[in-house]
Design a protein around this nucleic acid. Structure first.
Lengths: 111, 111
DNA sequence: AGCACCTATCGACATGGGTCGATGTTTTTC
DNA sequence: GAAAAACATCGACCCATGTCGATAGGTGCT
């Protein structure tokens, strides 16, 4: 179940993945993970952690994480019976560059 | 009021506004506007232009533009009976910085 | 083996939001 | 004043999707 980060999902897919309150909160947690409640000293954030952080049922968490992984924003490594999630900085870098084209658009005024 | 760009809408509101195929296309058009079909030589893009570009009915266009304006991504100036829309570069700059925090997050490289 | 735990999938439900027709408001033009 | 054009608002429809319970698949522990 390797994460196919080589192919570039559409920008809209990534934006739609981010533009959800639950997934946005999940990404923020991935950015600054609190000490794992299910596995102290773990090298990542597992799905069961998100259940606590997000306050949602397990299938719902699984669904949201799948969306993030499919969008290429997050990778999920399976270690034992846990899945550890990590951010994909490149994906956010690409989005950053996309938005930059809009931030600099108004700079050039039609002659 | 027309342009309440002083208050900062939530980041999620802006992301949700962008993460829509129609509005994304509208933003791209605002970035590189083609010559206006309803008013040649106009100093902006009016709503009726979007009807042609997006291929949608007028109420639908009005709805989408309102979402973009409310999100602070676009301003709408009313000139006569037309409303000319422009990008708000600052808003995209803020989003850019938001995403930068994820792009620079601890990137552990697999051995 | 048997059990407990984490995760993925399925099915069903409810909500949100995109879409359009009809209508109203404002402004320009004749 | 009347007509036309651009835009906003309203109401309704319909699809996408977030949510959960039930269930199945996998893994580690005793």
């Amino acid at each position: 179940m390797a994460a196919m980060t080589t192919e570039a999902p559409d920008t809209l897919v990534r934006l739609k993945a981010i533009a959800d309150p639950v997934r946005w909160k999940a990404l923020q947690f991935l950015r600054e993970p609190a000490p794992s409640t299910c596995r102290p000293g773990a090298a990542g954030v597992c799905g069961c952690d998100f259940e606590v952080v997000l306050g949602l049922a397990q299938p719902t968490v699984s669904h949201h994480m799948k969306v993030l992984v499919d969008a290429g924003l997050v990778t999920g490594e399976k270690h034992g019976r846990w899945v550890f999630y990590h951010l994909v900085p490149e994906a956010f870098g690409e989005l950053q560059r996309e938005l930059a084209t809009f931030a600099s658009a108004a700079a050039e005024v039609p002659a």
